[in-house]
């Protein structure tokens, strides 16, 4: 058992938990939270794989990919949350 494998398995659990949260939650905000957890799991697996290569330093290409991924995730999360807030507004207006 290497640390890379250990964290890879941890990332696999994150993917499963996040995907389930994104599908099974009732609240839109919780679904977006689940989507973020799913993304984090994917990132953990990618970086665990990057550490598995032979040599003193891990694979920098995977690191750059994940760095880009984190920034794109925050962009998508912001737009999704804006939509969720706006949807909450619309539903409020309908019930009044």
């Amino acid at each position: 058992m290497t640390p890379a494998l250990l964290y890879g398995l941890s990332g696999a659990l994150l993917v499963a938990i996040g995907l389930t949260g994104a599908i099974a939650s009732r609240s839109l905000v919780r679904r977006i939270l689940g989507f973020n957890v799913l993304g984090s799991g994917a990132f953990v697996i990618i970086i665990a794989f990057a550490r598995r290569v032979a040599g003193p330093v891990p694979d920098p290409v995977s690191h750059a990919l994940v760095l880009t991924g984190i920034v794109v995730t925050v962009s998508a999360t912001a737009v999704a949350l804006a939509l969720a807030v706006r949807l909450g507004d619309e539903e409020d207006g309908r019930h009044e």
């Binding site: 939270l33 804006a82 969720a84 909450g88």
Partner: peptide, 17 residues
């Protein structure tokens, strides 16, 4: 972002559906 969205969402459950 999450804190700000939660502050804006209506209702005690803050559930959209």
């Amino acid at each position: 972002l999450f804190m700000r969205a939660l502050g804006a969402l209506p209702g005690p459950t803050r559930s959209a559906h």
